[in-house]
Design a protein around this nucleic acid. Structure first.
Lengths: 173, 173
DNA sequence: GCTAATATTGAGACTCATTCTCAATAGACT
DNA sequence: AGTCTATTGAGAATGAGTCTCAATATTAGC
């Protein structure tokens, strides 16, 4: 099941701690349930499956990819339900959007309490590299304060060529 | 003509120097012409008008807005031509896209040799605030290097409420 | 467990930005 | 001016995302 998709591993910090990882996943499901309860919404099989799909895939997923995966278990599932559920998951801070440039739609990732990070996106192979830079964050926050702005969310994506693709280019073209 | 659109002033550095400003505009037109020549493309009235439109509007413009403005002078102009020309202008680095979130399409701004900046976008009033942070840039570049990434362009947009809209909220709701 | 009240679902219609197609036209070079 | 192409506008096409609605599933109360 998790065969070829180890390209981007979202959860390295759990690599050696499977029980902690399971705990984390359960806590996410609980949080979703809470959010639904708070808003008088219902927990359906589809919603459970969609969240589970994002939890199982240790990479960034687009709606179309999720649709393909989910249809195997539930051939009747509809794209609209996936869109709707993702919106709910974003609302309660469990999922974040990684906007992808021209061509196919957005991708999503499990956010929960993962530390904040931004993305570098390879325009050649499509790989998404996550990176952290506390100093960068710090000066960003400083700029936000300086302008009296109230930040709700942000999008910081760097497009270019990843190390591997740059090398390929420099070698024999 | 330039009545209500002083909300975002893109060119404050030319406020006191109209002759310099004119020089700058001419240099932009030349650069566009050069780019077209280099690629064996032609300079048409439409292309000239579209660039002029972006130069005249001292704010970020969407395609639909440009279409409305341009139709006044050339009622036959087509949206497709605007899209095509913007693409050309982006290619040669004269225009940059400011992606705008869910709802209506992207906005564009004259880039040319303006210093690099990023954007804060007010989700309440739609205002786009430009900001610079050399330190932030510096640590971003550092992160890029650290990952052996070759950056081609980036997108850094902060969504939230501008100072004015935050104040409105805190007052009598 | 059953029922009522209500939220949810999937299918397909719809929207809206952007791109494509193609026949007519306009630049650029001679 | 004439020729060779690139360009144009109109409208069709695409594609992500949203909406509508009748059928269905979930939940709380019994």
């Amino acid at each position: 099941m998790a065969a070829k998709q180890a390209e981007v591993t979202l959860f390295p910090r759990y690599a050696q701690k499977p029980e902690k990882y399971q705990q984390w996943l359960s806590s996410i499901q609980e949080r979703f349930q809470e959010h639904l309860g708070r808003r008088g919404l219902k927990l359906t099989h589809q919603r459970e499956e969609i969240l589970r799909c994002l939890m199982a895939a240790e990479k960034h997923l687009g709606v179309e990819e999720m649709y393909t995966i989910l249809k195997k278990q539930d051939p009747l599932i509809g794209r609209a339900t996936i869109f709707r559920t993702i919106k709910l998951l974003q609302e309660c801070g469990l999922v974040a959007e990684v906007g992808v440039f021209q061509n196919g739609g957005a991708k999503f990732e499990l956010k929960a309490d993962r530390p904040h990070h931004d993305h570098m996106i390879c325009v050649e192979c499509g790989r998404i590299i996550e990176f952290q830079s506390p100093m960068m964050e710090r000066f960003q926050d400083e700029a936000i304060k300086r302008h009296g702005f109230l930040a709700l969310w942000h999008r910081h994506e760097i497009f270019g060529r990843c190390a591997a693709c740059s090398k390929k280019r420099t070698g024999t073209p």
